Each structure stands twice: as C-alpha cells, then as structure tokens.
Computed example of a mutant assay.
Amino acid sequence: MKQKEYYIRNIQYLIRTAEEKDAKRLPAIRLQIDGETENMDRERGEAYIDEAGFKHIIKNDAESLNNLFLTAEVDGEIVGFSRCEGNMLKRTSHQVDFGVCVLKEYWGYAIGQNLLKESIHWAEFNKIKKIKLSVLETNDKAIKLYKKYGFEIEGVLKKDKRLSDGNYYNTVLMGKFID
C-alpha cells in the first residue's frame, strides 16, 4: 500500500507497509505494548520475537498476496502496527486474521482505527473475502470500533483468558465478510 499521512488532534502520523529496517525497532515496541495492557494475548516478554524474527515476518508478508504488515509512525518512530495473516490452503485462502496494537501513549488518535481501515481497503483490493479477529470481552472500545466497520460477533470462547486479577474472561470472535 502507499503510505498515508494523518493529522489528528495535533499529532501527525504515517501509516505504511512495514520495511525490513523496521525489524530493528519492532521487538522493543511489541514488548512495551504487551506490558501496557491486558488486551493482548501475551504478557510482556512472552512469545518474544527478535529482530531476525521480525525480518523474516516482514519479508514473508511482502512476498505473500494474503499477508499485510502495516506500521504507524510518529516523527520517524513506530508507535503501532497491524498484521493481516492469511494462508494458501484452498478452503481458507479467502480469509485473513487481523491483529493490531498501539503504544498506550498514542491511544485516542485513531491510529488503530486507521490501521484497520487501511487493512480493510487492502483486503478489498486483493479480493480477500473475510477478515476475522479476536478481542477480549472487556475491550469495549475495540468491539465498538470493529462493529462500526462492519464486523459481527461470530462466537465467544468462554473463560478463554486469565488476567492478572486471577479471573477468567471471554474472548469475542468477530468477522467481516467483504462482498
């Protein structure tokens, strides 16, 4: 995708396709984001991806018609990213899994929303028929945003995540079918 510039509430940022050079900064950003919220599947440090791992992901995503890796950048620094990940299996090649994360300092600037919008545009252009995602039941803002963009609740995984308070929470499965 072509990079796009946004200016929201006195913050200017770019959304663009991830490049190999981003792999150097992405491990630290992912670690920070994982430690700032319990909305992610991981706790800080779990399922760690190093620079080489991110280089591999970025390279594979760039070569695949069913994958997209986007970054959001403020003043040359990555503040969030999203991925659409598909596969080449005939029965499921029409769909991708979407995930997004943004540094807490940059919540409220529509960065996640714009990463989602660009991912939807990409999916439409590439004739992807379905985008699916999972979201923690307590993440009301995200669920509201996804519904705004045409996602529907397709199911609930009961007591799927145990958070720091020791309680179990449901994961909401959502999908958007693209005509």
Rank of each mutant, 00 (worst) to 15 (best):
M1R: 05
E5T: 14
Y7F: 13
I8E: 13
R9E: 15
N10S: 13
Y13F: 12
L14W: 02
I15C: 03
K24D: 10
L26P: 04
L26A: 02
P27E: 09
A28P: 10
I29K: 01
R30I: 14
L31A: 02
Q32M: 15
G35W: 12
N39F: 14
M40C: 10
E43T: 02
G45V: 09
A47T: 05
Y48L: 04
I49S: 03
E51M: 07
E51A: 15
E63Y: 13
E63F: 14
S64A: 14
F69E: 03
L70S: 03
L70K: 04
A72L: 02
C84V: 10
C84R: 01
N87M: 13
N87D: 13
L89K: 06
T92D: 06
S93V: 05
V96K: 08
V96R: 05
V96W: 06
V96D: 08
D97M: 09
V100Y: 07
V100N: 05
V100K: 02
L103N: 12
L103H: 07
W107C: 13
A110S: 13
I111L: 05
L115P: 07
E118R: 09
H121P: 00
H121N: 12
K130T: 08
V135A: 06
V135M: 04
L136K: 07
E137M: 05
K141W: 09
A142P: 01
Y146G: 00
K147H: 12
K148M: 09
E152Y: 07
E152K: 11
I153R: 04
V156W: 00
K158R: 04
K159M: 02
K161C: 13
S164E: 11
Y168C: 03
G175T: 03
K176I: 03
